[in-house]
Design a protein around this nucleic acid. Structure first.
Lengths: 66, 66
DNA sequence: ATCATTTGTAAAGTTTTCTTTACATTTTGT
DNA sequence: ACAAAATGTAAAGAAAACTTTACAAATGAT
């Protein structure tokens, strides 16, 4: 699983902190997700995708091994 | 979070076991999700949504308290 | 160059997501 | 009515998703 978080944040010109606040998680959680430390829960994935006005599958992309 | 799994399974006329096999989890996992015992991981949610040819947000619906 | 802001890292603990095995109950088909 | 198929339940353990705190490093603005 990879994600498009960093690109979307750049498009919207928001910081990790901004995004964290919008979806009610810690800034470090956003960082962990962005750096693929772990995959967000579905609840959080939906919230994040909604901030960027996109579908979950567009922000979080399955890879072969998943 | 609620989900539309049971309805989608009925639409496609497949059993919990069928769906479980399609997304490589145990039948009980599907049952647990369907009965809201827990929320699936994003990886699994994406796979399930794909089986039904829908977006994650269409199968798994956020509720106010989420 | 300097300072402020943003990102990056780590660790330990908590909570949630799954697994398996086993059994029970209900539903469906004949 | 009966058998097969499908669904429902439980429990314990492993793995993953988060949290916090603290600090470091990188980047951006002046």
């Amino acid at each position: 699983m990879k994600n498009d978080l960093k690109v979307q944040r750049a498009i919207f010109n928001i910081t990790q902190e901004d995004l964290a606040n919008k979806v009610s998680v810690s800034r470090q959680t956003i960082h962990a997700i962005e750096s693929n430390k772990y995959i967000p829960s579905t609840t959080l994935a939906i919230k994040i995708a909604k901030v960027f006005g996109r579908g979950v599958e567009e922000i979080f992309i399955l890879e072969e091994s998943d």
